[in-house]
Write a protein that binds this DNA or RNA. Structure first.
Lengths: 225, 225
DNA sequence: AAAATGAACCTTACAGTGTAAGTTGTCAAG
DNA sequence: CTTGACAACTTACACTGTAAGGTTCATTTT
């Protein structure tokens, strides 16, 4: 007979929301690669298979996490100036990465096909349309700005500033000797510089979009390569 | 005694280069997630552990793969106009994603600290300096342009156009009814539109950089948010 | 109150992963 | 022919997601 003390287990405790909350915690604590159903279960005080009652697979769970993050976003006030609306929407997305750094790499790579994500996407496309662009230019500008945003989120959370991942590390002396430009630039690659750098690129894109809208398309854009 | 026929095995066959070649093949065939040391070994006709004689870990192997791709890049001819040099360097990087679509997500996420990658990075930073920017602006513009490039490579190889990854798929009817902007924009999200969209965003950034260099910094860049 | 139902959870098991440790096969130098 | 070194293999371990089936318990029905 088993005389070991068994933690009294209150059934019916688990819920999708609880599991999602715990998942975010485990991911941020253990890293995205360190996340597993068993660790998640441990954090919840249950067995791994119990989670499958609420989510049929890890893929379903991950989709729910993305949906939660995207679903929490709301479109900027339509009464604000366009440039400001665009800026707010972009910063909102960027903030997700800031709040969930370990999850960012997954998040950015994720293909958003769920209804919740499509609804957000639809709203963002509306925002581009409100800028005065036709369907084609709205679509292309959305993607171009999205590229910038995705790359930024990725780098800010998993990039150069997060320390070496390479196996062959390079000493500071070698860096200074062989790669002086990297050495000099490194000062502006740190976390403290993220905002300023991001703003610079974002303003460049916003400026160009306003220029495009104001009919400056006879300018360099169609110029030589 | 074992009388089973054993494939005669020629020892001493393996080399780092062979393993890297096979790794690229396996990754593109099986996908990045489907890659494993055992599958790589099978492709090579050897056992998984034999690979460890040439690469101490998968991380080392991955680093070698990234090094090979980056190491193959060369800086654009310094005699060309600056804008064209920049464009070539950017397109060279982008082509890596095109040639190794399945590897792109890893590639873009990878933190480049190896000597080979640092050398490339150092050269690119030189290119920005050649554009007439000081250390700080070179560093920030490199990052901003890099964000755009990273995001593009990511999306072009693992993004929306590559089909649904979501578990809750949405029917075409629902898409047309509930997300008309997505439906309309979808036409410009396909693979065939990648080049044109990428060029649009790239030209926007190049235009802004030339404007910055030509001392137009009294313009909107420092304007209201 | 007793029985039945079904959701919620657990146990076990399997095929897969990276890789540490130890063993065998092969070839070249002495 | 022996020895040594190295390349490749074998085995084993701790981990992963999850399929299959068993157990427990709250609720509902009789």
């Amino acid at each position: 007979m088993d005389t070991s003390i068994k933690k009294k287990r209150v059934r019916g405790r688990l819920s999708r929301e609880m599991i999602e909350d715990a998942a975010f915690e485990v991911i941020e604590k253990e890293g995205l690669a360190g996340f597993s159903m068993r660790k998640l279960a441990a954090a919840l005080g249950c067995e791994a298979m119990s989670i499958y009652h609420h989510f049929p697979s890890v893929a379903h769970l991950h989709e729910a996490l993305v949906d939660r993050l995207i679903g929490a976003l709301e479109m900027p006030d339509a009464g604000l100036p366009w440039r400001q609306r665009m800026r707010i929407a972009i910063e909102d997305f960027r903030r997700i990465g800031r709040d969930h750094p370990a999850y960012a790499t997954f998040f950015v790579t994720y293909r958003m096909n769920s209804p919740i994500c499509l609804a957000w996407l639809n709203g963002i496309l509306s925002l581009f349309r409100d800028g005065g662009f036709d369907t084609e230019l709205s679509a292309r500008l959305f993607r171009a700005v999205g590229y910038y945003l995705m790359g930024a989120v990725l780098d800010e959370n998993a990039g150069y500033a997060k320390g070496p991942s390479a196996v062959n590390t390079v000493s500071d002396e070698q860096l200074a000797r062989d790669f002086p430009n990297v050495m000099a630039a490194g000062r502006f690659f740190g976390t403290a510089e993220f905002d300023k750098t991001f703003e610079l690129g974002l303003d460049m894109l916003l400026d160009e979009m306003e220029r495009l809208r104001d009919g400056a398309d006879a300018g360099q854009l169609s110029g030589k390569a």
